[in-house]
Amino acid sequence: MKGSLPTTIHPDPPQANLTEQVLAAAGAIILGKEHALRLALACLLARGHLLIEDLPGVGKTTLAHLLARLLGLQYSRIQFTSDLLPADVIGVSVYERDNERFRFHPGPVFSQLVLADEINRATPKAQSALLEAMEERQVTVDGETRPLPDPFFVIATQNPSYQIGTYPLPESQLDRFLMRIRLGYPPAAQEKVLLAGEDRRAMVERQPAILTAADLARLQGLVSQVTATAPIIDYCLAILQFTRRSERFVHGLSPRAGVGLLRASKAWALLAGRTYVIPEDVQAVVPACCIHRLVGGDAAGRLDHDEVAALILAAVPVP
């Protein structure tokens, strides 16, 4: 890769050690999914929201709860159902007769980490309650804007769209998720350990926090300091331009997707112990950052995860 790299290539060792502790603790509970766990942590360090799509029962909700515990975050869970209302997410103003005024009662969205469980089982109206929160980190109720906690993350789970009782997420909401990942079935050896071992939820409840809010803020600050040289920026731009020109897609990646792709690449580099981005960092996060934002230009609709990654990475030259 052309271009000069910074001479300091190792992040603060205590911070690097913290991320490895988080990944090790998570890997001891979510078995055989090291790559997905690293992607999930990179997403949160990059200040992004995470979408986990997979079949019921593979550990999506457990992973979200586990990340909240490990990162020391205030956690709330919203079960999305067909009768969920926006007020159930954001909150509602209730009239107090004694005070002769309305008082706002915050909803579960006012937490540092919000699990939107089975988000695609709610109607589009209920799903839209998260749009402002995810983008602006604030909500507007009765004409008043109320800030959300800092940090603020949404981890949403969704079942495959072919399952009964699901509503597709609109593109505007999908674009607000930095990454979409899948867990899949565990390898046979790890599943045997899972079956013979302790209940995973009990293990999560006992898991102490490894990070504090200050630790998380420092790590996020380190991500913003990771260097992306001109060739890396050109590489990301070439990926965006390819998706916009290709006839395989109805529309290409948005500028917000490009910003997120670069930010996620920096977080991946930090987890690898570097303060600069290399092409392999970009390639590692392209599938998770791109798949949910692209729609196939033929009758197939949304493309296969591996197919999109292979198509993009094969078509765009590495700097």
Rank of each mutant, 00 (worst) to 15 (best):
H49G: 02
L313E: 04
E247Q: 13
D199P: 05
A264T: 08
P108L: 03
L39Q: 14
Y235H: 13
S93V: 02
S172V: 14
L85V: 10
R97L: 15
Y162F: 12
E100W: 05
F104C: 02
L194A: 13
I29K: 03
Q225D: 15
P108H: 00
T229I: 15
W268M: 11
I29M: 04
L41S: 01
P231C: 14
L219W: 00
T166K: 10
Y95N: 12
G297L: 11
D304R: 06
R200M: 14
L261K: 06
P149S: 03
L31N: 08
A28I: 00
Q163D: 12
V223W: 07
G143N: 06
F80A: 08
H49W: 03
A16R: 08
L39C: 05
M179E: 00
A40H: 07
K266P: 04
V58T: 13
L178I: 07
L70S: 03
V295S: 12
K125D: 03
P255V: 10
N120F: 10
T7K: 15
Y185S: 11
R256E: 09
P151C: 07
Q112N: 00
A36D: 01
L5E: 13
L85K: 03
L115P: 00
Q138N: 05
K192F: 14
Y95I: 14
L45Y: 06
F153N: 00
Y276T: 09
G197A: 12
L313A: 10
D234P: 07
L219V: 04
A26M: 06
K192V: 15
H292A: 07
A315L: 04
R97K: 15
I233A: 14
A264D: 04
T157I: 11
G297V: 14
R263I: 04
A24F: 01
P187R: 12
L70M: 09
L18M: 08
E136H: 04
F80M: 14
D83H: 13
M1C: 11
R137K: 15
P255S: 05
M179A: 10
A228P: 09
A25C: 01
A238W: 07
F242T: 07
L37S: 03
P108S: 01
Q220P: 05
V318G: 09
A230K: 14
I29V: 15
R180D: 09
F102I: 10
E100M: 11
P231N: 11
L66E: 04
L44H: 03
D117F: 05
G3Q: 12
G258T: 12
T166Y: 11
R274E: 12
Q21A: 13
I90F: 02
K2M: 14
F104P: 01
L73H: 02
L85S: 06
G260K: 06
A196W: 03
P56G: 11
D12Y: 09
Q127P: 08
E100G: 08
L5I: 14
A156G: 03
Q220E: 13
E135F: 01
L270N: 06
P108D: 02
Q190M: 14
A129G: 09
G184S: 12
Q190L: 15
Q79I: 09
S128M: 07
L194E: 10
S82G: 10
P279H: 09
P6M: 14
L174W: 01
Q220Y: 05
Y185Q: 13
G91L: 08
V308G: 07
V204L: 07
E144W: 05
T140F: 06
G273Y: 10
F104I: 08
Q207H: 04
A126W: 04
V193E: 13
I9A: 15
